[in-house]
Nucleic acid binder design. Structure first.
Length: 917
RNA sequence: GGGCGGUUAGCUCAGUUGGUUAGAGCGCCUGCCUUACAAGCAGGAGGUCGCAGGUUCGAGUCCUGCACUGCCCA
């Protein structure tokens, strides 16, 4: 391959090519580490996207961050396992296929369970891989050989095992409880799947006649149709208004049932009339109260939220129709006595938006407290660390107030609960495999419970089931606990919390391979049952207006469309650069545009390098892999000031990037690399070495070799964030004979403290100041860009003067200067001179400066200087400050004050000289 | 109702344990097609860090209150 890049940077072409290459070459496949493995291990589980999913920005943010961390670790020599897979997503998938059926005029129930499930599998085989293909476009460096699906046989087997074990341990129970019922999906859903929304509504007041008196008792309700199932009226025992009615009964209007007045804390005297209706079958609080008082539970609705046979003449009506009719009838009979506007928090199904109906039904639950206790402990004792730290408290609070988990769903698609009902005696047998006979009566007439498990039940097991559990495997020894979990806070409770509970419970007593654990830097961790040792919670991606993206709002930004326009690298860089921990990301296209420009910059810098390598030939070429594994840039020979400077700067950026990535400060890492590459390497270093590259012989070869080595290291530094462009350039550099199959398998640059050069950095910054000052003056004097000007420089420190003299070629080139004269006295008084504490510079040019403008500029500058002087003096004159502030702060302030004083003097005299007012 | 976050340049955002004269990108203004790059280069304007107090030698950073705003939980 010739060392040549196309003139234009076109991300689309190179990205798809490398994405395919990485997958085809199985570059990221990880073999099970053998016993005695001494390398560190890094394990990360991909939060499995829904099999029905389409890639959205949230996925992309999540995957970008994971891929950065993963590539970083891999390059640092960790055995890095990133495990991908998809989730069967019970409700979502079932819905998707049902809709498909609907369009064919078919219905799930007409088909029957088996045919329907076969149909879903069909769908999965055809379309289920879409999101994974999209992931490939992102460059996610996962191990595709280990891809899983939550309904795979081995994972399903593990699910049954877990359920049965929990059952045997008494942590599963079944019973009639109030659950959140979605009438659209016709299934129970968990508390987490209900979203509360404040909506304007009404509060109706209904009066119930008290039997044996001519009194009424008035209650308030937002759901009058449920009164049909009332089985009591409750008043607070302390409420004096109702003491005389204790023990009496009321006649339930419309139904003409007698129901008791009970005393219960359920009724709060300060709310409404202080009396409440009690409907145990349709409200969780009423349900509890009903149990306390042994009240009957009358369910008045069916699974579609239509009124059932218990609703008398309202049977068959939809709940809202029933509400209208009930209100109408109540009014007609004089029972409705009030109607007020009221804001209610309406629970809606997270997926379809249908208003949830609290409904009494038979469901399966996990007794969660025992699991939660361990899950609290491992976070409190540091076995799991959560970043950012505030989520630790969110997690602990939630865990402390956790409710039993309803795990049964009235769906067909999912892991069917391994329980069988005996048609003879109704006893339920829970077993790993279909039992032949009933546990209790021995009947052979058994029927499997039709419910399936909540999708999160199986995904909560993934950290260990994907590694082979319930078998004891070498993979578990090596890779469990996973090192890290990166996810959004939106599934903190859904998923993360459950993984921790399940992991700690089922992996109790597990020990990670001690050698690997130590090598991975986790030797001090005591508890190996946790699913992962570190958690990083990232923010949400919002649209440019900070709105949460949603299909209904139509403000969804499609990452693939952004990628199409700007490239994956630029999109990844955007997400990384904006991902400051703890704050949401308002996705802003203009940033991506900017980062595409950055990629373009890199591209062109590479073209420049290749041009020179081609021309200069020989001697150019990156050092061997062994050398690249050493800190700093091993093959770099610091000859000139700019060499020493860039080497020092490179080591600093490498150190900073390491620290930033170690703390999940992706934005810092990205910005640091950006500033280095563009602001230092391209803007200054490349410009400064051009003359050397244009020389003949060894000097050019040496400069070119440095350039290549530095470029190679910079590409490796950038690779985790922008994998594609770095791969493309890197592969091109090695002319088809690279030291590894991919830059992704090369060592990550490490800082070498010995290559820090503070002296070079200081000198360079003075030189930069000088060049900028001259450019400044040129602009101010409106010197034609092509005209070279003579300059006069005064530098009172001899070593600085020498340094400038030594680098006069740089000044001449970069500021378009033709003759440099060092003068003996300060130039500060000269109109149109520029001064810093280290030098004065002046350009010799016949054109006069704009005195008024210069005066204004100088005055502004003087203001700033004086402000600094005043505050500095105040501090330095303060004994408290001198006594309490750290020595280096005082020292720096003193130095700064000296410089400011000098600048003040120079500026002042210039103002005077110009005759400014 | 309880909890958590945000408020910094026209816009989008950085600014980790308090410590020089608060930064970037985009946009804007001026000038350049300078042989890597006009997706670029050079120069420039632009902020009393939401408001009011407090702690401190020193506050964008810590504390209290308020305002606005977003999210989570009930």
């Amino acid at each position: 391959m010739p060392q040549e890049l196309s003139k234009a940077y076109e991300p689309g072409a190179i990205e798809t090519r490398w994405a395919e290459y990485w997958v085809k070459e199985k570059l990221f496949s990880v073999a099970t580490p053998p016993a005695g493995e001494t390398r560190p291990v890094f394990t990360l589980l991909l939060p499995p996207p829904n099999v029905t999913g389409r890639l959205h920005m949230g996925h992309m943010l999540n995957q970008t961050q994971m891929d950065i961390v993963v590539r970083w670790h891999r390059m640092r020599g960790f055995i890095t396992l990133w495990l991908p897979g998809t989730d069967h997503a019970g409700i979502a998938t079932q819905m998707m296929v049902e809709k498909q059926l609907q369009s064919e005029g078919k219905k799930r129930r007409d088909m029957g369970r088996e045919a329907f499930i076969e149909r879903v599998w069909d769908w999965k085989r055809h379309y289920g891989g879409a999101i994974l293909d999209q992931m490939k476009r992102l460059g996610a460096s996962v191990d595709w050989d280990r891809e899983y699906f939550t309904m795979d046989e081995n994972l399903s087997h593990a699910v049954r095992e877990v359920f049965v074990q929990l059952y045997e341990q008494g942590l599963v129970y079944r019973g009639n409880y109030i659950v959140n019922w979605c009438p659209w999906h016709e299934t129970a859903i968990s508390d987490l799947e209900v979203k509360h929304e404040e909506v304007p509504g009404k509060l109706w007041e209904i009066r119930y006649p008290v039997i044996g008196t001519n009194e009424f008792i008035t209650v308030a309700t937002t759901r009058p149709e449920t009164m049909l199932g009332d089985t009591a009226i409750a008043v607070n025992p302390k409420d004096e208004r109702y003491v005389h009615l204790h023990g009496k009964k009321v006649l339930l209007p419309l139904m003409n049932r007698e129901i008791p007045i009970i005393t219960d804390e359920l009724a709060q005297p300060e709310f409404g009339t202080g009396a409440v209706k009690v409907t145990p079958a349709h409200d969780p609080n009423d349900f509890e109260a009903g149990k306390r008082h042994n009240l009957p539970q009358i369910n008045v609705m069916d699974g579609h939220a239509h009124m059932n046979e218990n609703a008398g003449r309202f049977q068959g009506l939809d709940r809202y129709e029933a509400r209208k009719r009930v209100l109408h009838d109540l009014t007609e009979h004089g029972f409705l006595v009030g109607e007020k506007d009221y804001t209610l928090a309406l629970g809606k199904c997270d997926r379809c938006g249908t208003v949830i109906e609290p409904r009494l039904s038979e469901q399966w639950f996990i007794k969660i407290k025992p699991l939660a206790e361990r899950a609290i402990e491992v976070v409190q004792n540091g076995a799991i660390t959560i970043v950012p730290e505030n989520f630790r408290q969110v997690y602990l609070n939630w865990m402390a107030n956790i409710h039993d988990w309803c795990v049964s769903r009235q769906l067909w698609w999912g892991h069917r609960i391994p329980a069988w009902t005996c048609t003879a005696c109704q006893h339920v047998t829970v077993a790993r495999e279909a039992p032949l006979t009933c546990d209790k009566c021995g009947s052979m007439e058994l029927e499997q419970v039709s419910d399936v498990l909540d999708t999160w039940f199986s995904s909560g097991l993934l950290p260990f089931t994907t590694l082979g559990w319930p078998e004891t495997t070498r993979d578990l020894d090596a890779f469990y606990p996973n090192t890290l979990m990166i996810t959004g806070f939106d599934i903190l409770f859904f998923w993360l919390a459950r993984m921790i509970m399940f992991g700690c419970h089922f992996m109790q007593g597990h020990r990670q391979d001690a050698t690997i654990k130590k090598a991975s830097g986790e030797a001090n961790r005591k508890d190996d049952s946790v699913p992962f040792r570190h958690v990083y919670i990232h923010a949400l991606v919002r649209d440019a207006e900070r709105q949460k993206m949603s299909k209904t709002k139509g403000n969804v930004i499609d990452p693939l469309e952004i990628i199409e326009r700007f490239g994956t690298d630029a999109t990844r860089f955007t997400l990384a650069a904006m991902a400051a921990p703890g704050t949401d990301i308002a996705f802003n296209e203009s940033r991506t545009e900017g980062y595409r420009a950055f990629a373009n910059k890199i591209w062109n810098a590479a073209r420049f390098m290749f041009m020179n390598v081609e021309r200069i030939g020989g001697g150019a070429g990156a050092p061997a892999r062994e050398l690249q594994n050493m800190p700093g840039i091993a093959g770099f020979t610091a000859i000139t000031l700019e060499d020493r400077w860039i080497l020092s700067r490179f080591n600093r950026v490498a150190a900073d990037v390491h620290d930033a990535l170690a703390a999940y400060r992706f934005h810092e890492a990205a910005n640091r690399i950006y500033d280095f590459f563009w602001g230092e390497f391209c803007d200054w270093y490349l410009e400064l070495i051009k003359p050397r590259l244009n020389m003949q012989g060894e000097a050019a070869k040496a400069a070119c070799a440095n350039l290549v080595n530095l470029f190679d290291a910079a590409l490796r530094l950038l690779h985790p964030v922008m994998p594609f462009i770095t791969e493309e350039i890197w592969q091109t550099m090695y002319e088809g004979n690279p030291p590894a199959k991919s830059i992704a398998l090369m060592p990550y640059p490490q800082a070498d403290v010995k290559q820090f050069d503070l002296g070079a950095e200081t000198e360079m910054s003075i030189l930069q100041d000088l060049i900028v000052s001259v450019r400044n003056l040129r602009a101010e004097l409106k010197v034609e860009p092509k005209v070279k000007v003579p300059v006069e420089i005064y530098a009172h420190e001899p070593e600085i003067r020498a340094m400038i003299d030594h680098n006069r070629a740089a000044l001449e080139r970069l500021a378009n200067v033709e003759k440099i004269t060092f003068v003996a006295g300060s130039l500060a008084k000269i109109a149109g001179a520029r001064s810093t504490a280290r030098f004065d510079v002046h350009i010799v040019y016949e054109r006069k400066i704009d005195v008024a403008a210069e005066c204004e500029r100088l005055k502004k500058e003087l203001d700033k200087i004086d402000k600094g002087i005043t505050s500095g003096q105040r501090q330095l004159g303060n004994q408290q400050f001198l006594a309490k502030a750290p020595a280096n702060v005082v020292e720096n302030l003193r130095k700064q004050q000296q410089e400011l004083a000098l600048l003040h003097e120079k500026t002042q005299s210039k103002l005077k000289e110009l005759g400014c007012r």
